[in-house]
Design a protein around this nucleic acid. Sequence first.
DNA 1: AATGCGGGGAG
DNA 2: CTCCCAGCATT
Length: 343
Amino acid sequence: MKTKKQNADFLHVGEKLLAWYKTYGRDLPFRSTKDPYKIWICEIIFQQTRIEQGLNHYHNFISRFPDIETLANAENDEVLLYWKGLGYYSRALNLHKAAQQIMIDHEGIFPEKYEDILQLKGVGKYTAAAISSICFGAKIPAVDGNFYRVLSRVFADDFDVSNSKAFQYFSELALQMMPEKQAGSFNEAMMDLGSEICKPRNPKCEVCPLNQDCLAFNLGKIQDFPVKSKKVKPQDLELKYYFVHFGDLFLIKQRKEDFIWKKLYEFPVEIPESFSGYVGSMKTVSHKLTHKNLTIHIYKVSLPTIKMLNDFAKEQGFTITNLVDSHQKSFPKPLENYLKNID
DNA sequence: AATGCGGGGAG
DNA sequence: CTCCCAGCATT
């Protein structure tokens, strides 16, 4: 139970955070707009993605798809192309579906209610809270990894952030700190503090605006927070590909919308017996995903006639492309790298 | 409640 | 090498 006095203290900490943000907050491109479309795009791009990594993608994406209707009417492949290299490709597929969803359900106008925003494909509680607070002033904490880290440290709270109830738990904590107005700025302030000061490792507690209030800091136990229990060990996985080509032409096919690299393009994974005589050099590349360590063998198959390429493509449903055209497709990172270094 | 999903940067 | 980042969907 929180007493009234404690509650007043919480609000005081929230005000300090807000004051710090106004002077030291990051000057990011999407901070200058309250267009829910742009905020939506940036929130999706920066899920599990650091700002530096996604900033170019954000600019390119907004430039090509400046509004909901443009995105809704785009080709699926082109949306994926603008997501190339970002990872978590279902985010791009969901963005596309959600844009079409808005055209149908909301007449092309981005919904303003938290509950309606939450219905959009790929939008969860965090993103719905971020959009509705930043764009529409709703007093809802956008609880993400930064909230977990900052709050668990400030209160020296050992609530396991891997627990599925952590979101609700830290939401209630954050709500007590949240000012009535400027909810969006408060959420952004927490993100900036978590990113610039209260970092996962080597936090800059000396210059933290909350260091007088931070229990973990004052106890000398910053390293103990946040508490996170889950540890998933990556599995090893081997993949085999054949770079089947005649001159500049080679074969690709789109992946299914399941497993990894949803709907991205890849090379054939097997070849007919009759091609075995044309198998040349093999390259092995290692690639780490969050839960998998991939070893990929890519065999170069140089066919002597274009007819062999055509027949195989036709029978097995492959697309014939070349290096220049393939830039218009989205490939998994290791295959993208392979294409950059063809002998 | 647990698992899968990318890629990159920091220590 | 390990950890983690403006999380979400699925089971």
